[in-house]
Computed example of a mutant assay.
Amino acid sequence: MALKTATAVAAGILLAGCASRYTPTPLATNFPTTKQAKLQAAYHWGVISDNIEKNIVAQLKKGPPRPVFLNEPKEPSAFQRALTTQLTTSLVNDGYVVSRSPAGSLKIDMDVQAVTFNANRPQYRYHGESAALATGVWVLSEIEAPVLAGVAVGAGAWDSYAWFNAQFAPGATPKTEIIVTVSVSDQFRYVARTTSAYYVADSDRVLYGIIDPEPVDPAQTRIFKVRGDM
């Protein structure tokens, strides 16, 4: 063990000594581990709406009370339509006057920006998996959690493993994300504003207004070369 430790330290010193002190561009590094919610049901849209409403109300309370008007897009996606409806309900239930006309009201605008990254993005979770020690006895090894690391218990350990693993959305990291920005403003200034980002199931892209082009069949594509003057 001591030999392995000494070897690792020596290797670290050697690598540190070889690192370049000057580079033409900043070195690419990873951000600290964070979590981002994945939208998979209409109920999740309601959770988003409630969170947006709480943030907006907290900022609206800083000024005199005024009616608000939700400015729905002309051709809203299913997500935008649901979010507008749920946000209206939350504001009304919290005692705010939601006007059906923009005249004399603060305007609430909603912007949903869809971002598509490269497919097959990496999925980082934790190190270690469950393993059976004996009948009804499982071990959770090398899991980076204070209460679960290296714990071997009875049959209930599988429930603990399933509970720990349930926090992660199934499948690979989606290639689709949306950035939701809700702004409250009048003709002169922004009164409140909130922005948040979410993963979106790639199979549900159409619900967020993302229309993918039809695939082109190479067998039906021909290339013509034009020669001479037109």
Rank of each mutant, 00 (worst) to 15 (best):
M1W: 08
L3I: 11
T7I: 12
I13D: 12
A16I: 07
A16T: 09
C18F: 13
A19D: 13
T23G: 10
T23L: 12
P24S: 15
P32A: 00
T33D: 11
Q36C: 05
Q36V: 09
A37H: 06
A37C: 01
K38I: 11
K38T: 09
K38E: 07
L39C: 01
A41N: 11
Y43G: 11
W45K: 06
D50S: 12
N51Q: 12
I52G: 02
N55E: 15
G63T: 13
R66S: 05
P67Q: 04
V68N: 04
F69R: 00
F69D: 04
N71S: 10
N71W: 02
E72L: 14
P73D: 08
Q80A: 05
L87M: 11
T89I: 08
S99A: 08
S105P: 00
I108A: 00
D109Q: 07
M110A: 05
T116D: 06
F117W: 04
A119N: 13
N120I: 02
N120C: 03
R125Y: 03
E129N: 13
S130N: 08
A134I: 08
G136F: 07
V139T: 14
A145Q: 08
P146T: 05
V147C: 04
A149Q: 13
V151D: 04
A152P: 01
A157M: 09
A157N: 04
W158Q: 14
D159H: 13
S160C: 08
A162N: 15
W163I: 03
F168T: 04
F168G: 02
A172I: 11
T173M: 10
T176C: 03
E177Y: 00
I178E: 04
I178P: 02
I179K: 08
I179Y: 02
T181W: 01
V182L: 04
V184G: 03
F188I: 06
Y190W: 01
V191Y: 02
T194P: 01
S196F: 01
A197G: 06
Y198V: 03
Y199H: 09
S203P: 00
S203K: 13
V206Y: 12
V206A: 15
L207D: 14
Y208E: 00
G209L: 06
G209W: 05
E214M: 14
P215K: 04
A219C: 05
T221S: 02
I223A: 11
